[in-house]
Design a protein around this nucleic acid. Structure first.
Lengths: 239, 239
DNA sequence: CAGTGGTCTAGACCACCTT
DNA sequence: AGGTGGTCTAGACCACTGC
């Protein structure tokens, strides 16, 4: 009998099983998975095959391996996830931890544009958070973040909004961001943000539209930010 | 006897040997390497160990594998390398092949700034190419490219400058670009470029400073570009 | 058909961490 | 000492390519 077009390598099937367990929350953040041998026995394959599946998941930032200890769910902490996706720094410089001040937070129906970017239905509700980020005490970035209530139920009732939202997504909703897509324009700074960034209206700034994507490949957050590049640059490293 | 801090996994040693052969031009662009078994026998390791080294090189874009045929030196063609590093496209759009018009080309001593970015000595010569790139027939990007003559001897004597410089680097100089680092600012368009881009001086544009890095990790080209984002965006996909 | 890369296995040993 | 991931090997078989 031919497997025809349905052929999938064993390690890919193992990958799919393990990924779906991850998505369904079988293992909590920073918890160790069973050992390679335990998984191999359970799934009826060899340890090397499990290893290949795990290595691919590590490469895709879903898992972390620690020699001598075990394989862990990738953790979104200040140092890791914030730095992995935060793109502003001094020219040729080190990573910088941004400070954050929340300006407003509100719940409303998604706009047409938001429906498109987040694959929502008309009438679906979103939470909009505006915040100001400081780099080395300089107000540098105005962020406007859209979160669908269908994906993050009751997120509008969160009392504290942490500096790293991705950590919150993972801890409270079991959603791990593994990819972001940015689109950049240069624009004149809108009047409404001039005072907050301490710049004249019309000053050239970079506008970053960001789609944040979870393990399943779904866009779960959409944001738009105006960024001063007087003292800092947007950094991109392509391989 | 302890190997102490000198310990290197076998596959890493194989990787180093093969990479240095690549750098030294043992194999030409688009030429097949010996088979895994042939390399394994020659180097005195198992086929699986060679395989692991080759897979890492593939992951780092030095090689390409074609099932049933062989392992090849990665090729910098229009479709591949141009698209891999070219970051401008329409919002949510497809890749676009840019057209290019060379505005000027000249040879001179490197400026202090260029010496720093390219790790050159005072007095080292560089070639400077200015060109205008069109996306869908719209003049969109003014590029200023610096090439060290120490790295690309006699490049100033090239009669034709191709659309994809990386292809030229590989073909004529055996230099393969595997990574680029971009730093982006928003600036007002300088007067001198206003006419060429068909925009008013002072219009917000993105300034991209790019370092292009070869297999050995050396910066071999440095460029600065002013990019209109009226119709196109700078796109970045982080994983 | 032969030759290549791709998958899978089983077993050995090493390096690292914890107890 | 025992458990984990990391490396290495040898051999088998599959899938794709080209003669």
């Amino acid at each position: 009998m031919s497997l025809a077009t349905n052929f999938q390598p064993l390690y890919k099937q193992v990958y799919d099983v393990l990924r779906s367990r991850l998505v369904q929350g079988h293992w909590k953040a920073s918890e160790a998975l069973p050992s390679e041998y335990a998984l191999a026995e359970e799934l009826g394959v060899s340890q090397g095959t499990v290893r290949k599946a795990l290595n691919q998941m590590v490469a895709e930032n879903m898992l972390e391996r620690r020699q001598g200890k075990g394989t862990y769910v990738a953790e979104h902490t200040q140092e890791s996830s914030l730095f992995r996706f935060f793109r502003f720094r001094e020219s040729e410089g080190e990573d910088i931890i941004p400070d954050t001040k929340v300006l407003s937070s509100s719940k409303r129906a998604a706009s047409i544009e938001e429906q498109e970017h987040l694959a929502l239905q008309a009438g679906d509700m979103v939470v909009e958070i505006k915040r100001l980020r400081y780099l080395k005490s300089e107000p540098t970035i105005i962020e406007n973040i859209i979160q669908p209530l269908t994906i993050f139920p009751d997120i509008d009732k969160e009392s504290v909004i942490p500096n790293s939202l991705y950590g919150l997504y993972q801890e409270k909703y079991g959603i791990t961001i593994v990819q972001v897509r940015d689109e950049l324009h240069a624009v004149g700074l809108p009047d409404e943000y001039a005072e907050q960034l301490g710049l004249a209206a019309g000053t050239p700034v970079i506008c970053v539209e960001r789609a944040s994507i979870n393990i399943e490949g779904r866009v779960v957050e959409w944001s738009k930010a105006f960024c001063s590049t007087e003292k800092f640059v947007y950094f991109s490293n392509l391989k």
